[in-house]
Amino acid sequence: MNDIRKIERDVNMANTKISARSVDVFYGETHAIRNVSVDIADRTVTAFIGPSGCGKSTFLRCLNRMNDTIETCRVTGDIELDGRDINARSVDAVQLRAQVGMVFQKPNPFPKSIYDNVAYGPKIHGMARNKAELDEIVEKALRRGAIWDEVKDRLHAPGTGLSGGQQQRLCIARAVATEPEVLLMDEPCSALDPIATAQVEELIDELRQDYAVVIVTHSMQQAARVSQKTAFFHLGDLVEYDDTDRIFTNPRDQRTESYITGRIG
């Protein structure tokens, strides 16, 4: 793995943003996630890797309670965000999702203008008092999404008219616009070409300055490039969770080694 671009890995482990303990997920009768415990650090990129169907996306969706939207899905265990149980009755899933933003596998801009796409979150959460403030939020988000220069002249063109990579960065800008504290990314580059992937990865690395970023990825190279911590899932179990360097150079578990060397998966 010598070709992997090393990224400065200054992780302050004292600063835990999300802490999950003994999380189990069931889809009807299927036991999708078994007893997973993970601490996700703030201002860090954490990668979830593992073969298809290993439950990494399912676990990601627990972190902002997106699994609530699936009728047959049941989640048990404790997940704490800043020390507060997110599954507690007092927590509104809707508020939580504003705090924990999400970017999906396939770019999914709404069939609205670029501006309206980004303004969507701020509008429903009443973050802007007037048009000028909203304009400002939108511009800031688009700049953070590293797409401002490409779209600033056509903010009112439909978001669906952008290229795949631009759409995904638009979706990231849209998620950033609500000023979340954590950003969840479910295979954000799987539908993108290598150039767009490189742009999004660069963006992820920048976002680390302000957010805890959790990224699910199929590509081990990507995990190695962008993340500081890596969790390896296999068949619903969290097999190993450690610094990315260590996972890729000196894994403790046999299964992790088999996966990263391409023998299972």
Partner: peptide, 13 residues
């Protein structure tokens, strides 16, 4: 479904 997810994921009711 992606539209629903996108909207809910941004904290829409």
């Amino acid at each position: 479904q992606a539209m629903r997810d996108g909207s809910l994921g941004l904290g829409a009711t």
